[in-house]
């Protein structure tokens, strides 16, 4: 019997939280089509993750826990997924559009000559076709697309579908063998440097971002500081003003390109057309003017708060709440208020 496949992305044996959004999206498609949801889990700890997927709504799972699948590598992952798709012809293969999933789904769609819908914000069945809406032109407009064929691959925008409350459940788990053995895989991971405390902007429920305005920090570099004083001020501001604010909110730290290009904060934090696209519940922009390329990355945020000393800054046009003033006075005040009110 055909099914809806949902690839559960894992890292070091743990599922990404966003994967459960994909399971929920699969669940609602499955109910309208009357087919089961099958979780696909590859790599270490696959059986445990598969049962976790069950608690979030999967009916059964196909797992492959093999040493060749420990690191995500396209060759063994795509070979396995394409093989499962060719053998079982699922109606749909779903995953959250992370960088790994985009690559995996696209590759398998090519291997099996299947259609693919990417970055879906909505997903429905219409007259036998799968239809989805996705943002294009950096989210300035949307497009509707329809896909046909035995199997359709769909990557979903994270935070566009809501995951279900988990109810512990043990499900049927089928174990399959890998398709490629290590000596058939050309790509070898020689080294992996994990960046601890990395910014997971796309999953964050709250983001606070700083822009060029971070440089107007009243704090001054220590006497005899040889570097660029502006950069020091901005970096100090990100660390001692924005970070404590983010911590008080349980938020991730973002930035504008101007802040990144000036070396105030690493590129991984950049939000916008050439950075990350985010859609948190709350997006707080401090010292950011709101250029169209910045808007491209954050316009789907539910509540936007702007803090800017220039009341005419374009960011206020899209803000639900606007605070005109010096971020170096306002942010410490909010942090204090939060810590007092939320009892931290």
């Amino acid at each position: 019997m055909s099914a809806i496949y949902v690839w559960i992305e894992t890292f070091k044996g743990k599922a990404s939280a966003a994967s459960w959004e994909a399971v929920a999206a699969g669940r609602s498609l499955a109910s309208s089509m009357g087919v089961p949801v099958t979780a696909l889990v590859f790599g270490e700890n696959a059986v445990v993750v598969a049962n976790e997927a069950g608690s979030f709504g999967a009916d059964n799972a196909i797992v492959c826990d093999d040493a060749t699948l420990t690191h995500f590598r396209l060759e063994p992952y795509a070979a396995l997924l394409s093989d499962l798709v060719k053998k079982n012809e699922p109606f749909v293969v779903l995953a959250i559009a992370s960088s790994r999933a985009r690559e995996l789904l696209a590759a398998s769609a090519a291997d099996t000559d299947s259609a693919m819908l990417s970055d879906a914000l909505t997903l429905n069945v219409d007259d036998g076709d799968l239809v989805a809406t996705r943002p294009v032109y950096a989210g300035k407009v949307w497009s509707d697309a329809a896909a046909s064929g035995n199997t359709v691959f769909v990557s979903l925008r994270s935070r566009a579908f809501e995951s279900a409350e988990p109810t512990p459940k043990t499900i049927d788990v089928i174990t399959v063998a890998p398709v490629l053995s290590e000596d058939q895989i050309m790509t070898k991971v020689e080294r992996f440097e994990e960046e601890v405390g990395t910014v997971n902007l796309t999953d964050a429920a709250i983001i606070v971002s700083g822009g060029r305005g971070m440089a107007n920090n009243p704090a001054t570099p220590p006497a005899g500081y040889a570097g660029d004083a502006t950069v020091w001020k901005a970096q100090d501001g990100f660390e001692h003003t924005l970070k404590p604010f983010a911590d008080a909110l349980g938020a991730a730290v973002g930035a504008s390109r101007a802040a990144v290009d000036a070396g105030y904060i690493p590129y991984a934090h950049q939000v916008g057309q050439t950075g990350r696209t985010v859609a948190p519940d709350v997006y707080i922009a401090a010292g950011i003017s709101g250029a169209i390329q910045h808007q491209a990355g954050m316009r789907s945020s539910k509540i936007i708060v702007a803090i800017n000393k220039d009341g005419e800054a374009p960011i206020f046009k899209m803000a639900r709440y606007g605070l005109v003033g010096d971020l170096y006075q306002i942010i410490p005040a909010i942090t204090e208020e939060l810590n007092r009110r939320l009892g931290k």
Partner: peptide
């Protein structure tokens, strides 16, 4: 032959 067709472009719903 299997394909994805864009059926429409839309402006964003007003914020």
């Amino acid at each position: 032959t299997n394909s994805t067709k864009v059926t429409a472009f839309k402006n964003l719903p007003p914020r």
